[in-house]
Amino acid sequence: MSNAKLYKGSLSTIILKLLAEGDKMYGYEITQKVKKMTQGELKITEGALYPALHKLEADGLLDVEVKKVDNRLRKYYKLTEKGTKESINKLAELERFIETIQGIVNPKPSLG
């Protein structure tokens, strides 16, 4: 995937944002949701998603819940209080970054 490198640094922000919007989600659901929201443009790879989730969990930003669904166990992730605060910061950070990049890719003509 050509855009994998571009979004790699934003993966945890994307996860936090999705969890801030919804309640709790499981790994596969996150990959599918991102795929749907971006019309398949952005595909989160399995090898990247779980390490990112585990890191956020270890940092105390996510909490886990396990439920028995069909005949298997499903692990859900949800934001902790710390995670909710962090998701706001991270999103603001990402927005600033997008603006900066926009300034480079699409510079506004200067008046002087």
């Binding site: 499981y26 790994g27 298997r72 692990k75």
Partner: peptide, 14 residues
């Protein structure tokens, strides 16, 4: 294992 099993099962069902 559990997390991966659920992931694989979801994908197969899809």
């Amino acid at each position: 294992q559990t997390e991966l099993v659920d992931h694989l099962a979801n994908a197969i069902e899809e």
